[in-house]
Design a protein around this nucleic acid. Structure first.
Lengths: 337, 337
DNA sequence: CTGGGTGGGACTAAAAAGGTCCATACAAAG
DNA sequence: CTTTGTATGGACCTTTTTAGTCCCACCCAG
């Protein structure tokens, strides 16, 4: 049995925003009464006009009284406030978390989905959906999307919905082979996404282990070069964040690398880079494609990672990473705070 | 402890309408799937365009799937529908009642407020508020309002809110003295309403008991005649409905009248007319003002009456009364069905 | 091939929301 | 008594959203 709020979140997501806003207004009126529109709007960080509309509504509903001295609560308003207190904790918990995370990690945006993907695997799918939803409005202006590998990003790909033919997106893998299983490789995910989005894609066919000379030659190959150019000019990047050791093991890295990762206390991994707790790059998988320095401010960068166990990794990566959008879950978010 | 829905009803009433609508759409899709926009819009009595917007939203939320064969439910959609069933009974219970009553009594509109004014006196105030809310949008086109007496209409007057100076309403009492106490007389209510609405008003000064000749003379008085003309040309009428015997007693009618009312099994009373169970007029208080035949289709007529004890009276009056707007409460509405 | 259904695009009219400014009223302070 | 700061409420304009209307491409069964 899900709670009513959860169902409403699906059926009318903006309802909760409106509700939360009106709740905040009432809270503030109660605290500051009698108070005028102007000072209230400063407190709530809203323009006077929109606040006015809300206040007039609340007045009409009889939840607050509006007089030449300012606004005051009515009994009914106080009553509603009281009734809502418990509910709003539940409703706005995540919103509050989002705000906190956004400030703490200096992010462009944070989206938190309820649940913990460590515990429930379907939470990953929710993150995927949230990512797509956040992505959609951007696709009118941008269309080149670079994606990495990993199970989380694979979940994003699974949730991808087709988009209009007008702005067909173009997907490219962010970096060359990183040693993952085929279903978690960037190339695979890239093509899955493109198929589900009914968009185009290019693949990066670069073998995992090559000598320095071979790399140089590969890079000069026309087919490869074209994709590399696409990657660097991508306007959107979607990547996951992993725990360093887990990733190193999963990629069957050499014991040498494994030891390096452990010796330097690497905790986070993102598109082939390993980071320690304070955000230093301690190791980098040798391959072509997007480099850390390529993640400039012009790109919109999505990091998708959830599960309380990954909180540490997220925190570490975000110390170094550029200003970006983080999509995570409640479990990770709570551990992060 | 009120339920969340009750609080939301106060805090965001229109969002609940939206929710109900989306719920209905999902219900119908489940029943008719696969179904196209067009046939769905016929079923739901909505224009195709607004339905389309909703459907696109529901699709994006993953609650239904939209394919060239038509729309079908997703698992998540079915799930949401299941979760909502219980809630919607509560949310839309009144809406359903409203629909039923509207059809059963052939009314223009029905508004039901939760509660039973027999049990809780504040329900009358809610009816008053509902009446005002329903009235407001009409005031741009119309401004002459005739009101009767009675405690219910007095409650409406109490809840009246001031309106813009642009369209100042003009209040007149619907009929002359009916023998009520002063606080429930049409004149008193009329002036109260006008004051609260910051509008104008005219009063009808006609003593209760007069001989036939005196009546004729009164009616020819310029001051009285002007008001009578206003009354007949009123565009809006607001009246209550009472139980016949109660009203006869409250008005201290002569035993003769009382016996007449009882002998003819009158059950309902409205603006001085007494009706029996099948809507016949069995008695009429002798006074000037609005006559039953004056209630034409051009006028918008509000009947405000609540409490399960009044259900019988409402039913009786509505058999005879013109097509109008009924504002009542849950108690009366449930008894009526 | 055709005729009914499907979704989706495009254009326009209408309505709502939001930004900005000002008139006015009230109360406390000078 | 006047001034000043605060309050609401009205007015007006621009922008955005919403809704109405048509029309097209498509699919599938008869």
């Amino acid at each position: 049995m899900e709670t009513l709020i959860d169902v409403q979140r699906k059926l009318l997501p903006d309802l909760l925003d409106v509700m939360q806003n009106r709740y905040r207004i009432l809270q503030n009126v109660r605290y500051l009464q009698p108070v005028g529109r102007r000072s209230l709007s400063v407190n709530l960080q809203q323009t006077e006009r929109v606040l006015r509309a809300e206040v007039e509504f609340l007045n009409q509903q009889g939840l607050l009284k509006i007089s030449p001295q300012g606004m005051t609560m009515t009994d009914e308003g106080n009553h509603v406030l009281l009734e809502l207190e418990e509910v709003m904790k539940q409703v706005s918990g995540l919103h509050v978390l989002e705000q906190q995370l956004m400030e703490k990690l200096n992010l462009e945006d944070v989206i938190i989905v309820p649940g913990d993907s460590d515990r429930d695997s379907w939470v990953q799918r929710d993150m995927g959906k949230a990512c797509i939803t956040r992505l959609m409005p951007l696709l009118k202006a941008k269309r080149k999307i670079a994606v990495t590998g990993g199970t989380t990003i694979a979940a994003v790909a699974e949730m991808m919905t087709p988009m209009t033919k007008k702005n067909q997106p173009l997907f490219v893998p962010a970096r060359g082979g990183l040693g993952e299983n085929v279903e978690n490789q960037a190339n695979t995910i890239c093509s899955t996404m493109a198929r589900k989005a009914s968009g185009e894609y290019r693949l990066l066919h670069v073998p995992d282990q090559l000598s320095e000379e071979s790399y140089q030659m590969m890079v000069e190959e026309p087919g490869v070069k074209e994709v590399l150019d696409l990657i660097r000019s991508a306007e959107i990047v979607i990547h996951g964040i992993g725990e360093a050791e887990t990733m190193a093991v999963r990629r069957k890295s050499s014991t040498e690398v494994l030891e390096k990762v452990q010796a330097n206390h690497a905790v986070a991994e993102a598109f082939g880079y390993y980071f320690d707790q304070i955000g230093n790059v301690v190791h980098k998988v040798k391959t072509v494609g997007l480099q850390l320095d390529d993640l400039t401010e012009e790109k919109t960068i999505f990091a998708v990672a959830g599960g309380s166990s990954k909180a540490n990794a997220i925190a570490a990566y975000m110390k170094r990473g550029p200003r970006q959008v983080l999509i995570t879950d409640e479990g990770a978010a709570k551990s992060l705070i």
